[in-house]
Structure formats: structure tokens, C-alpha cells
């Protein structure tokens, strides 16, 4: 498949359909995002479900795509994306962080094995150019285990998990959708500064709530956690709830607005949800 992708990327570059290709490159056995400007470079192009392309750059707190767009407003960028990355792009565009007009999407679908490894519910972009749409993973042992337990057991579980937190902000930094200039997690008003672990569960609750209608389930938060806190467990469940309550899924369509930003008339909520 990777050979096909290289061929496709080459065609895009040669034909002038795009001026640069944004994708993963392998160097010295390590993978990192790269902008390919020359055909020869494409030899080192790779695809991997474990390595995301877009991060919010800090300290500017802007996505790398936005930084590029600001500097080169007219450049056509071909972006090699997996399902999660396409959802991130769409969600960023929806929230006016990037513009899609100069972005050409080269969608790649992940395999079922890769989906299982990432616990990915939708391991394919909307229109994959390569690979087949395979079934995603919906069940999550963590959640099921937790939902079978009582309140105090759940709370005890999270208190022990969250008390491992060393406040690296990795979950936020690795999240493609955490781009706020003023992040509530940093504010003393909500969670006392300069202390580890941070206030439990407030510190992490901020992300769970703020990501409720944005989370695209890429799992980067969990993968970035040096203390192995199962952060995705809650985000996954909340995303499921949002779908159930509003029949809305983030990251699928730029034009579809978030239910939390619209009225009940524009996007109604399933009744009985407040009880």
C-alpha cells in the first residue's frame, strides 16, 4: 500500500495539483511529520497509525497547518491523513483554526488490526483513496468494567489513577483540538497551581468537559500520558453520549455545528436526558 501511496503522492506533486505533501517521514528509524517538496524525498514517506501529523505548536498555540497557512496563504498542501487526522482537520476548520480551501486530502484507511490497537471507532477518512473501510472498535473493557461498579468504586478508581498525574499537560499538548489561547487547566481559579498531583478530579474534568463535543478519539492524550492514566476511557464514553443525545459526531462534516453551540431548535436533544 505504501508504494501506491508514494506513487499517488508523486502524481500529485508532479502534476502540480499540490505544491507540497505533508506526511510522515522515516529517518534513522524514527518517524516524524515532514513536508515533502521534492519527488526524490518521497522515498522516505511512511504511514503509521501510531504517529499523528498535527500538533498544536507551543508556545504559539496554533496548529502547524495554521502556521503554514499564515505564512503561505496560497500554497496548495496535499495532506496524507488517516481517519483520526481527517477528523482533526475537519474539527479545526469548523472552529476557524484552519482553512480547508488549500488543503487536498489524501485519505488512507487503517487496517482492522491497527484499529484494534488504537481502540479506534472509525479507522478511515470519509473518502479513503487507499485501503478499505473496516469496522471500528466500539467496546472498551475499561468502560464496561467501570460502568458495572458503584459510585464509590468508580470514584476510588479515578482518584487513584488521577493522583498519579504529574501535571505535564501532555494530554492537552498532544491533543489536536486543544488550541485555546487561555487554557482553563492553567488557571489558578480552577485548579491550584504549582502542585502535583493537581486537584482531583477538577484538573482533568476541565478537559473531559471541554472536549465533549470536539474529541475525535485519536487517543493522543492517553498515549502522551507518562503515568498511563486511561484518559481516553471517559472521553470515549462522552463522545458516545453526545452521539446518543444529539445524533452528532465531531470531525465528520465542516458544516455541521456543535450541539453545545446551538439551540434546542437547531439541534434538539433526546428527551429525558437531564434526569
Amino acid at each position: 500500500m505504501i508504494e501506491k501511496l508514494k506513487k499517488l503522492a508523486k502524481e500529485y506533486l508532479v502534476s502540480g495539483k499540490v505544491e507540497v505533501i505533508f506526511g510522515l517521514r522515516e529517518k534513522d528509524n524514527h518517524l516524524a511529520p515532514h513536508i515533502f517538496t521534492k519527488v526524490e524525498e518521497l522515498d522516505s514517506l511512511v504511514v503509521s497509525p501510531q504517529y499523528p501529523l498535527f500538533y498544536t505548536c507551543r508556545p504559539s498555540k496554533k496548529n502547524i497547518i495554521r502556521l503554514i497557512e499564515e505564512k503561505y496563504p496560497d500554497i496548495k498542501i496535499g495532506v496524507i491523513v488517516k481517519g483520526c487526522e481527517e477528523r482533526a482537520l475537519i474539527e479545526l476548520a469548523k472552529r476557524n483554526q484552519i482553512e480547508m480551501k488549500n488543503i487536498e486530502i489524501l485519505g488512507v484507511a487503517c487496517s482492522r488490526e491497527e484499529a484494534v490497537e488504537c481502540k479506534c471507532p472509525r479507522p478511515y477518512p470519509n473518502h479513503p483513496l487507499l485501503g478499505e473501510k473496516v469496522e471500528g472498535v466500539f467496546e472498551d473493557k475499561n468502560i464496561e468494567g467501570l460502568l458495572n461498579k458503584g459510585w464509590s468504586e468508580r470514584l476510588a478508581f479515578w482518584q487513584s489513577q488521577l493522583s498519579k498525574c504529574i501535571k505535564c499537560y501532555g494530554c492537552r499538548n498532544a491533543c489536536p483540538l486543544c488550541f485555546c489561547q487561555d487554557c482553563a487547566m492553567e488557571q489558578e481559579l480552577w485548579s491550584k497551581i504549582g502542585e502535583i498531583p493537581p486537584e482531583i478530579p477538577m484538573f482533568h474534568f476541565i478537559r473531559f468537559y471541554h472536549l465533549a463535543d470536539r474529541c475525535i478519539e485519536c487517543g493522543e492524550c492517553e498515549k502522551a500520558c507518562p503515568m498511563d492514566i486511561p484518559l481516553l476511557t471517559i472521553s470515549k464514553q462522552v463522545r458516545k453520549d453526545v452521539k446518543e443525545l444529539f445524533n452528532y459526531e465531531s470531525g465528520l462534516d465542516v458544516k455541521q455545528e456543535s450541539p453545545l453551540l446551538t439551540t434546542l431548535d437547531e439541534m434538539p436533544m433526546k428527551e429525558g436526558a437531564n434526569e
Binding site: C57, R58, P59, S60, K167, G170
Partner: peptide, 23 residues
């Protein structure tokens, strides 16, 4: 220099960093 990305293929850090590393 616009930012820092963790390296998932590194033996020790495995894509994780502390707050100093991230900044």
C-alpha cells in the same frame, strides 16, 4: 523554532514528556 513534538520511538520517553520537556 515553533514547537516540540514527543518522540514515540524513543526507548525511555516513548512519546511522553514532563512539563519541562514539553516547554
Amino acid at each position: 523554532l515553533v514547537g516540540i513534538l514527543p518522540c514515540k520511538s524513543h526507548l525511555v520517553s516513548q512519546g511522553k514528556l514532563c512539563i519541562k520537556g514539553w516547554n
